[in-house]
Simulated assay, not measured.
Amino acid sequence: MQQLSQTTSLADLPLITLTADLTRAANQIPGLAVFPYLAMIAASEDGTLPQPDMAELIQIMQLAAGVSWVPHILIVDCGAIELGEPVAASRPPVRALVQYLQTAGFRSAVSHSWEKVQHALQHQSVDLLLFCVTPVTSAAIVTQMVHSLQQLANYPPVVVWNYHSQTVTSASEASEWNRVATRILPPSLSILELLVQINQTLAESRQHLGATQR
């Protein structure tokens, strides 16, 4: 990687990485534009390297070449909304997620205010709404957010991630989220696996949008 970064003609090119080790090494070198193939990285965690899905790989190549749209993900830190905390107080899993999203080539923003989330959905381009839920997220807050989303004519795909690995989303809370959620993810999911789910959700959304526009 060091030799690559020292070769001007190569260092200026986007770099697509297929393993976690390559991604970590590339991200440690300033100036390299790294685009990890997340689905393959997750599948290769057991030490094997599977064959890449050509459709997915082409999408990553398009993104790396700058000929594809860059998805905007709005992250809702539900625990912070409940406690009225500022964005700077985001918990470590949420901060780590933002860094991973940036590394993966996404645009993202964290919101601790439901009013600001509603404003963004109405006035900005949001491609996916990611709710990060915690044990302190009350049923009343969940109901309020779900009801507000249902009042919108259109809202983006919704992914719900419980980032407390020891806490299972209750049946009543899951039932409430199911009114708007595209995916409710298990608490055992790692951030890398979460990114794979985000990619799949965005791909399905794009396919659905393309089909409705034909």
Rank of each mutant, 00 (worst) to 15 (best):
residue 27 N to D: 11
residue 45 E to L: 15
residue 149 L to M: 11
residue 107 R to W: 13
residue 42 A to Q: 07
residue 50 P to I: 11
residue 202 L to M: 01
residue 7 T to R: 06
residue 14 P to R: 00
residue 88 A to C: 05
residue 169 T to Y: 04
residue 191 I to Y: 01
residue 66 G to D: 14
residue 125 S to D: 08
residue 46 D to T: 15
residue 116 K to L: 13
residue 112 H to Y: 06
residue 172 S to P: 03
residue 155 Y to N: 06
residue 81 I to R: 00
residue 134 T to C: 05
residue 71 P to E: 14
residue 12 D to N: 03
residue 25 A to P: 00
residue 16 I to A: 00
residue 192 L to I: 10
residue 200 Q to E: 12
residue 123 H to C: 05
residue 163 Y to T: 08
residue 213 Q to A: 15
residue 79 G to N: 09
residue 22 L to M: 14
residue 27 N to P: 02
residue 43 A to W: 09
residue 164 H to T: 14
residue 168 V to S: 00
residue 126 V to M: 01
residue 202 L to D: 00
residue 66 G to Q: 14
residue 85 E to I: 03
residue 46 D to R: 08
residue 129 L to I: 09
residue 31 G to I: 11
residue 77 D to C: 10
residue 160 V to A: 09
residue 112 H to W: 06
residue 90 S to K: 10
residue 199 N to F: 09
residue 22 L to Y: 08
residue 104 A to I: 04
residue 209 L to G: 03
residue 90 S to D: 13
residue 140 A to M: 02
residue 178 N to M: 12
residue 50 P to D: 03
residue 193 E to W: 09
residue 133 V to I: 15
residue 101 L to R: 00
residue 11 A to Y: 10
residue 159 V to N: 02
residue 197 Q to D: 11
residue 116 K to W: 07
residue 120 A to I: 09
residue 25 A to C: 00
residue 23 T to D: 08
residue 149 L to T: 14
residue 160 V to Y: 07
residue 90 S to M: 12
residue 32 L to F: 12
residue 106 F to P: 01
residue 199 N to H: 14
residue 96 A to I: 04
residue 180 V to E: 06
residue 47 G to L: 10
residue 177 W to N: 11
residue 25 A to V: 00
residue 188 S to H: 08
residue 12 D to C: 06
residue 160 V to G: 07
residue 6 Q to Y: 10
residue 92 P to K: 02
residue 197 Q to P: 01
residue 210 G to E: 15
residue 59 Q to F: 03
residue 172 S to F: 07
residue 65 A to T: 11
residue 136 V to W: 04
residue 70 V to S: 08
residue 68 S to C: 02
residue 45 E to T: 12
residue 108 S to G: 02
residue 52 P to W: 06
residue 93 P to N: 04
residue 171 A to M: 11
residue 161 W to F: 15
residue 8 T to I: 09
residue 10 L to G: 00
residue 7 T to K: 05
residue 208 H to F: 10
residue 80 A to Q: 06
residue 43 A to F: 08
residue 96 A to R: 10
residue 175 S to E: 05
residue 5 S to N: 01
residue 87 V to L: 08
residue 2 Q to F: 07
residue 169 T to C: 13
residue 165 S to I: 09
residue 66 G to H: 14
residue 166 Q to W: 12
residue 92 P to A: 12
residue 145 M to V: 07
residue 44 S to W: 11
residue 94 V to G: 06
residue 106 F to C: 13
residue 116 K to M: 09
residue 202 L to Y: 10
residue 95 R to M: 09
residue 212 T to Q: 14
residue 156 P to H: 09
residue 40 M to V: 12
residue 63 L to D: 02
residue 144 Q to A: 07
residue 69 W to M: 13
residue 43 A to S: 14
residue 128 L to Q: 01
residue 96 A to E: 14
residue 119 H to D: 15
residue 88 A to Y: 04
residue 159 V to L: 15
residue 36 P to Y: 08
residue 123 H to K: 13
residue 96 A to T: 05
residue 134 T to V: 05
residue 26 A to D: 02
residue 154 N to P: 03
residue 110 V to S: 02
residue 175 S to C: 04
residue 45 E to I: 12
residue 58 I to T: 15
residue 90 S to T: 05
residue 202 L to Q: 01
residue 32 L to T: 00
residue 46 D to H: 10
residue 99 Q to D: 14
residue 38 L to S: 00
residue 194 L to W: 06
